[in-house]
């Protein structure tokens, strides 16, 4: 449900950027979403369609790049990557290189508007 509050904000931001460039319309919105974030693509699109009506973003596509969950090994510095499913199913995940369980989260919670493709 929080996708609703977030979508309105995204449309505001991208519309401002598009207006500043005198764009006729927004063709694509590119987002990066960390796999730890609870952002369901289906709801993002659903709310986007509702909120974008009558704005420069109406009809645009959304490209959501999912940033994987990445852990750094304290012992050997190797970085182990996993998707959300793998994270849920392996509570005892260890470093894929040295087997250490001393892992520290280093990415997977980003929530960013990367850019937009516009028609001038």
């Amino acid at each position: 449900m929080h996708e609703l509050a977030v979508m309105a904000g995204i449309i505001d931001v991208v519309s401002q950027y598009a207006k500043a460039q005198n764009a006729k319309k927004i063709l694509d919105i590119r987002l990066t979403v960390g796999a730890l974030r609870d952002f369901q693509e289906v709801w993002v699109r659903h709310y986007f369609e509702k909120f974008s009506r009558g704005t420069l973003a109406e009809g645009a596509t959304i490209t959501m790049a999912i940033q994987p969950i990445r852990f750094r090994c304290k012992a050997c510095e190797h970085s182990t990557e996993m998707g959300r499913e793998a994270f849920i199913n392996t509570p005892t995940a260890t470093c894929e290189q040295c087997g250490s369980a001393e892992l520290v989260l280093c990415s997977g919670s980003q929530l960013m508007i990367d850019g937009i493709e516009v028609q001038l």
């Binding site: 904000g9 931001v13 460039q21 937009i116 516009v118």
Partner: peptide, 18 residues
Amino acid sequence: MDSVQLIKIKEEILSDNT
């Protein structure tokens, strides 16, 4: 003629709230 341009934004989605 219409042209397509890529605009870089790189803005945190919840920056207003933050």
